[in-house]
């Protein structure tokens, strides 16, 4: 194959363009990081003029982080969110993959109706069901518990949809052969379907994790004791009309964004493959 090398001028232009674009995305974030690492005080001191120091603090201190973990129990919020996210992931990967398998590989009465019921859930705005949902959660006696945060998010229509698309690509012949060899359905599901679907599972893990990690509105309504305070609630609590503590706000925002960054860094490869392998590929 003939490979054409790029002209140096084109290459340089691409570098400049890429750098400009990356700056557009990263500068605001760099600014949060810099603000979190500055000694706490009026943030406005560092606001103008716009210099390099805006993005790289002259005195670096971790006092703000120490403060939010030691005195404001931010660690507790991190653990709460982690617990809620992991539990939701465990439940929804299990039950949504089962449903996706059923919808992808079987012919049965009412199948289209069931699939339609799944699709409808994409279209229900959460804000519109939140009041009756709270009434329900209260009646089930699980308000102000972890269950209230976990269970409503466990049945995820998008996850079912992704699993269904992915499982449809697995040749039915393989499963038939395994059936003939006497493998049970549970065995087929565990030994054939799930291993082949790692990218789909990872995609769902990232999706559910981000959903639960970013959720703010529902935790505010469903829980009220600080024992169950989740990350976003803890972060936005520093933001009040009269007295916003910017140092606390930004340091908790940074600490609260690290878990998604770490997760994403490790799973990026699978995540991307999961989407391009969902039967949506061209």
């Amino acid at each position: 194959m003939m490979r054409r090398y790029k002209k140096p001028l084109v290459l340089a232009a691409e570098f400049v363009l890429l750098t400009a674009i990356s700056l557009f995305f990263i500068l605001p974030i760099l600014w949060i990081v810099a603000s979190a690492l500055r000694p706490s005080g009026p943030l406005y001191t560092y606001a103008n003029p716009l210099t390099l120091q805006t993005f790289f603090p002259t005195t670096v201190t971790f006092d703000n982080f120490v403060h939010i973990f030691k005195n404001l129990h931010f660690g507790r919020a991190l653990l709460n969110s982690l617990l809620v996210a992991v539990a939701t992931i465990a439940i929804s990967v299990l039950i949504c993959s089962m449903a996706g398998f059923g919808l992808a590989k079987f012919a049965f009465r009412g199948k289209n109706l069931f699939f339609f019921i799944v699709l409808i859930t994409f279209m229900v705005p959460f804000e519109s069901i939140v009041i009756p949902l709270f009434v329900l959660v209260k009646r089930l006696n699980i308000d102000n518990t972890y269950f209230a945060l976990i269970l409503p998010a466990a049945g995820n229509g998008l996850a079912i949809f992704l699993f269904r698309q992915f499982f449809s690509e697995v040749p039915t012949e393989i499963l038939e052969a395994a059936r003939i060899d006497g493998a049970s359905w549970i065995r087929i599901f565990r030994k054939i379907i799930l291993p082949l679907s790692i990218p789909a599972i990872v995609t769902v893990i990232v999706m559910v994790f981000m959903f639960q990690w970013n959720s703010l509105f529902w935790p505010l309504i469903a829980t009220h004791s600080s024992r169950f305070e989740v990350v976003q609630v803890a972060i936005t609590a520093h933001r009040s009309t009269e007295d916003t503590s910017w140092a606390n706000l930004f340091s908790s925002a940074i600490a609260g964004s690290l878990p998604p960054v770490i997760l994403f860094f490790f799973l990026q490869k699978y995540f991307v493959r999961g989407i391009s392998g969902t039967g949506l590929k061209g």
Partner: peptide, 24 residues
């Protein structure tokens, strides 16, 4: 079998999405 596979998720969806949606 297919119905058994669907039951857990649909229980969650119906209880926590459809039920509140209908009452809304």
């Amino acid at each position: 079998l297919p119905y058994l596979l669907l039951i857990p998720t649909f229980a969650v969806i119906i209880l926590f999405i459809y039920w509140p949606a209908v009452s809304s």
